Amino acid sequence: MESIFVYLLGVNGIVFFLMYIDKQKAINGQFRIPERTFWLLALLGGAVGAYIGMNVFRHKTKHPSFRIGMPVLIILQLVLFLFLS
């Protein structure tokens, strides 16, 4: 159980940090991190970090797929986690 917590903490930290980096790249007009990277990390357990990063950095909040999809993914992952526990 502890290793799962460490994994989830790590993947959520990574996707949160990538939201920050992508926001800075957007501000500076630089090459961006593909959205599929955020979705892959979210599917691998980083949906909470992506959602928090969206709100903290005000990034991807106008995209309905992120605004709606991340909370739905968080709920699905929570249900799955509770089911497997």
Score class of each variant (00 low, 15 high):
G46C: 12
R58G: 08
L40V: 15
V56K: 13
G53Y: 01
I52Y: 02
H63N: 15
M54A: 03
R32E: 05
F38Q: 09
A47P: 10
G49T: 01
Q30C: 05
W39V: 02
M54Y: 02
K60S: 03
W39Y: 12
Y51P: 00
H59P: 04
T61Q: 14
R32L: 04
M54D: 00
G46V: 10
A47E: 08
F31M: 10
G49Y: 02
H63K: 15
T61I: 15
R36Y: 10
G49W: 01
T61G: 09
Q30Y: 08
I33E: 00
N28T: 05
V56Q: 04
G46F: 07
R36G: 08
K60V: 04
P34Q: 05
A26I: 05
K60I: 06
G45C: 11
Y51N: 10
N55T: 00
G45H: 13
R36L: 09
I52P: 01
F57K: 05
L43I: 15
Y51D: 03
L43W: 14
Q30L: 14
R36N: 14
W39D: 05
A47H: 09
K60F: 07
M54K: 01
E35H: 08
N55E: 08
F38M: 10
G45S: 13
Q30V: 00
N28F: 08
Q30P: 00
K62E: 13
G46N: 10
R32Y: 02
L44A: 15
R58A: 13
I52Q: 00
K62N: 13
I33M: 03
E35G: 06
F57N: 03
N55A: 04
